[in-house]
Simulated scan of single mutants.
Amino acid sequence: MWSLLGAGLCLRVALAPWVGGQSFDLNLFKSWALAAAENFSGFYLHGSSDYPPLYIYILYLVGKAVSLPALGSYFTLLIKLPSIAADLLTAALLYRLAAKHLSVETDLLLSAFYLFSPAVFINSTFWGQVDSFFTWVVVVAVWLLTEKRVYGSAALFAAAVLMKPQGIIFLPVLLFELVRLKSVKRFFIAAFTALATALVIILPFSFRQSPLWIVKLFAGTIGEYPYASVNAYNFFSLIGANYKPDTTVMLFFSYYTWGMIFIVLITLFTGFLYYRGRSAKHAFLAALIQIAGVFTFSVSMHERYLFPAVALSLLAFIFLKDKRLLWLSVGLSATSFINTATVLYGMTRGGVPYNVPMFLTSLLNVVLFIFLAKAGWDLAAGTNKKEDALRTK
């Protein structure tokens, strides 16, 4: 496993400086890193960043590192390095959990599949984006739920939200587990832990700011792309609504309203399956359904928002041992890679054009979610029947 991780690291470090990536995003991260290193507490006062505060801590360290003469020429690599490290940490977690629940051969194969997946490579090493780091925070938060460490999980869920607004998509999983535990005390302690974590992350940036500055930041970030789809190969791109205003009406409701309806329905479906499953081992499956469902059927989705589904599908397989989840990991890895590569290398002004790759990949994502929903239903029902049978005996 150490050889596997070493190979993954060396390959990434060798490629990262020479692959140009997405120049706009890389230059933005570089400017934020320098700004944070120069004036950390005043970062949001004097800048125009739309990112929540958590990743600014990482960029601050990068900005400080690049000021050293020996590291000044490695700025691009240093910007990509946190996500590269997160790739390795996620692969190591896959190995650890697979070794606990599956065979030795399987744990190495699953780790290798993730570590060398084109979908993972293109996001961190090529593009230079931060989805790998966000995914690592999310998967550790969900893993802690399976370990009955609810308070640590609540802290990391709060951290995920304060890194990317998409973290909100995963919050219902924490709520479902707290409801399953039926403990008012745990619920309030978890809520307090999440709030305290958020305050610790936000506080250094809050001096000389209005009390609701973080709320305004989130509102601005969420409302920045008022479109049915923002190059995400999903249901709305399938019907030709990529980069169409989310106020456009379809069957009595706007795209935005349909997106909200789908989010509510997907969350209720996930909650019902979690209730039927009666176990925290369904947490990764619930997180997978949340991200895959919201990406596929909600509005304002970007091409990279499906990225956590690759790791979550593998982790769900480890805990539930259903081979359909392995097929889903392959399918979601393929669609995530195609979507990301098309946007990274083929996007024109105004979004990716409606063409055959968009149509087929969007259709495949819809089909994969239906397949996932059916697998989730079967797994929750199967667990329910087994527990009822044991109780009867």
Results as ranks from 00 to 15, higher is better:
Y256Q: 12
L94Y: 05
E147L: 14
G63N: 09
L97N: 04
K386M: 11
V264S: 10
I266S: 11
S132T: 08
L178Q: 10
E387Q: 13
K185D: 00
Y256W: 13
S183L: 11
N39A: 15
W2Q: 11
R324K: 11
V366H: 07
V343I: 14
E303W: 07
A91T: 07
I169T: 12
I318S: 04
Y255I: 05
G351F: 12
M347R: 13
V140R: 11
P53E: 04
F113Q: 01
T383R: 11
Y95A: 07
F205S: 05
L285Y: 04
H282A: 05
V139D: 04
L15I: 02
E303G: 05
M260R: 14
F188T: 11
W2V: 15
V299H: 13
A196V: 15
L344D: 03
L314N: 01
Y345M: 03
V104W: 05
K182R: 15
T340R: 00
L212M: 08
V200M: 09
L181H: 11
I263V: 14
Y256I: 01
L4A: 08
A37K: 04
L273N: 06
V366Q: 09
G8V: 07
Y274F: 15
K64Q: 04
Y255F: 12
S132E: 05
L203H: 10
T197M: 08
N123H: 04
G350K: 09
L320C: 11
A86S: 13
R180N: 01
Y151F: 09
L288I: 14
L89C: 11
T221P: 06
R149G: 00
K281W: 05
A334Q: 06
L368S: 06
Q22C: 00
L108R: 14
G223F: 04
Y274W: 11
V356L: 15
V173T: 15
G382M: 10
R208V: 09
D107K: 15
L15E: 03
E177V: 15
V330A: 14
L94G: 07
D322L: 09
V343R: 01
D378S: 11
S132Y: 02
F218T: 12
V230I: 02
Y275G: 09
T348F: 03
G351D: 09
L102V: 12
Y225R: 14
S229Y: 04
F43N: 02
A35G: 07
F272L: 13
K30V: 06
N231C: 03
F157V: 12
R96L: 12
G382T: 10
L312M: 13
